[in-house]
Design a protein around this nucleic acid. Structure first.
Lengths: 194, 194
DNA sequence: AGATTAACTGAACACCCGTTCAAAACAAGC
DNA sequence: GCTTGTTTTGAACGGGTGTTCAGTTAATCT
């Protein structure tokens, strides 16, 4: 046997990334072997190397792809003109974006330590860029007297942590709809800073 | 060679657990080998099996030990008589306890997926037991009219997530002291629920 | 001092790891 | 239908994995 019937890189390529994402999220990068990924895709391990130079790149590409999507989706959002409205927009955008891709979110901060140092730096820069947007909203709002925050940097991280928490329990089709979840979290964020 | 000079189980035992904790936190359970742990301790890999039946138990014992400590430390705390004071005590206790043992906290929710199913259930029960205490405070306070929470369960998880976030950035000897951090977070928690 | 117990070594077990590559089989273009 | 290019196999590479255990040495007990 060699090339199999119906095989095509346009199909296998995405399936490799999907399988890697799913398995990394379930068991962790280090616990997943290239042979497991290959089995999920339905090929032999060697075939994976048509789609990635090595296992590390498979992880890195997933994480960088996620951060790129996050930043470009955020850049497409309208920016309201008051700090309160900006914070509301940010909070709801964050929840919506993260609930739409739970696996990517999960590996994006569970697997950071399995990146090589250079790759880690790259991802961290993108993360700081995103968190910086929230910090700017808080600082501007604080200076304009719209928010009362003790420490802008810490408040930024506290809000991000709280919003990220939604991914630990939310399941689509559950008790609460997405707009309801957005409303509950926005209510807590708003009260925490005013 | 065989038994080495000065060797004693009272010394080696704790060192095995410390090495495992440190290495699991740095690289993740799956990425750390028994030989690496042994090297850190200064013994051969076989000697580890005087202290643990297998690698899985090493992880499980660290996690269960952490949860046991958490629950027993919490049980020793005084419980104030008003809901607001109870929430304040809980928030500050949580921050203090978690900042005192960052490595245990870290592996306690990074390595959950590397537990066997039975071990996972055991740890999850302990976690729910702890989170249940916060939920009780919120529910009692809500019924007494002290808090305005849209959803007790979700608010519980949101507060826990926010408080856990402190471990991602706090370094002792940094810009802020422990009491300052406690005060900032308590301020945000209080405002979020009233 | 001699016997007993506790602690550890070092080698071995069977198996899995990421990665490479020549050979083979299929798809696409003419 | 034949050639060219694409995709995959299957075996191999050197090395690492968790775990076991007979044998050896140090500590402890009598």
């Amino acid at each position: 046997m060699a090339r199999t019937a119906g095989s095509h890189s346009d199909i296998t390529g995405p399936r490799v990334r999907e399988a890697a994402l799913s398995l990394f999220a379930q068991h962790g990068y280090a616990a997943v072997s290239m042979r497991q990924i290959a089995k999920e895709v339905g090929v032999q391990a060697g075939a994976l190397y048509n789609y990635t130079p090595d296992k590390q790149s498979l992880l890195f590409d997933l994480l960088r792809g996620h951060m790129d999507e996050l930043l470009s989706a955020r850049a497409k959002e309208l920016v309201p003109d008051t700090p309160v409205a900006q914070l509301e927009a940010f909070s709801k955008f964050h929840i919506r974006f993260h609930l739409e891709r739970p696996l990517s979110v999960f590996i994006s901060y569970m697997e950071l330590r399995n990146l090589t140092p250079e790759n880690f730096v790259t991802i961290e820069e993108l993360r700081r860029k995103y968190e910086g947007q929230l910090e700017t909203i808080l600082r501007d709002g604080h200076e304009a007297g719209a928010f009362q925050v003790a420490d802008t940097k810490i408040t930024t991280l506290a809000i991000i942590a709280m919003l990220n928490g939604v991914n630990t329990w939310y399941r689509s089709g559950g008790r609460l709809s997405l707009p309801e979840v957005e409303a509950i979290y926005w209510d807590m964020v708003r009260k925490a800073v005013t």
